[in-house]
Design a protein around this nucleic acid. Structure first.
Lengths: 154, 154
DNA sequence: CCCTTTTGACTATCTTTGACCTTCGATTGC
DNA sequence: GCAATCGAAGGTCAAAGATAGTCAAAAGGG
């Protein structure tokens, strides 16, 4: 018998496969009691096995009627974007580097013209008015977060 | 099963859509008993989901024959964006306020789904990881800069 | 030993509830 | 008439409740 993290991961995977649209919603506490473990165990499983690099997206809401939604991304975006996003997120970015990525994505038709313009505005040094090192970090965070959002949008 | 706040919000949204002029009048107590909740629950829903940033206006009158009127503000697509950008740029923005504006513009079809998602990612407090006051200022700068870029894109 | 898993105390966020307050129209007492 | 009073709305706010997130220490397993 495997460890509990594996069991929980398998159950989630099964549920995802049985779901017609590749989206499931669970309640953390409920799943935890089903497996007789602490709720943060579920968080751990999601954090280690349902990551963006593996093609999953996780959203949640707290409070009464709260939930955790797990989305299995379709194959196509799973190849191109995540790798680039990972590269972008890894290190701080200069404006020139950021613009390079954006232009490349635009040329590859992964961004519309409007989307590219928005991203260019967001990475502009006049908009990101911060000390240089912090600015380059924020630029990287922003660009990767926005591109990640795009993956989720489909 | 959803929470009650969502249910009430949905009902109000439905009523607004069915109303020809985008105006509805309700009685707080009546709506509360329809949903078997306390009246202040209705106040909560209005305060959190029918805000000015989201394009709604709420007026009310107390006393006998009192009411709550909810108005869905009309948006002239031609000059809406400049006005909203102006409002956004004027002051620092909380995440909730920023999300309100984005959702409004999306509802009114001035943003595509993808664009809205990108903007939502950009104003997220986890992405804009800075001291709160600076964060709210950056949020305002970012959002207005990106929306301005969109205007220019056409 | 080092890496992964398991736990739980503490934190953050959102919702629900209720006691108390304010406003307004209607009624009453003079 | 007119002010005092009353009842019927809606408003405020803070506490309690319901979830989920974080983080680091403890426990397992190679």
């Amino acid at each position: 018998m495997k460890n509990m993290a594996e069991l929980i991961a398998q159950q989630l995977e099964t549920m995802l496969e049985q779901s017609p649209d590749g989206v499931i919603e669970i309640q953390r506490g409920a799943l935890a009691s089903q497996f007789a473990c602490v709720p943060s165990q579920v968080t751990y499983v999601l954090a280690t096995r349902f990551t963006q690099e593996r093609g999953y997206l996780v959203e949640s809401k707290r409070g009464g009627g709260g939930y955790i939604r797990v989305v299995k991304l379709p194959l196509d975006p799973r190849n191109a974007l995540p790798k680039i996003i990972h590269a972008i997120a890894a290190d701080p970015l200069t404006q020139a580097q950021a613009e390079g990525y954006i232009q490349w994505l635009y040329r590859e038709h992964l961004l519309t013209r409007r989307e590219a313009m928005m991203l260019l505005a967001a990475v502009d040094r006049n908009v990101l008015e911060l000390p240089v090192d912090l600015r380059d970090t924020m630029r990287s965070r922003l660009l990767s977060a926005m591109l990640m959002a795009l993956m989720r949008a489909n």
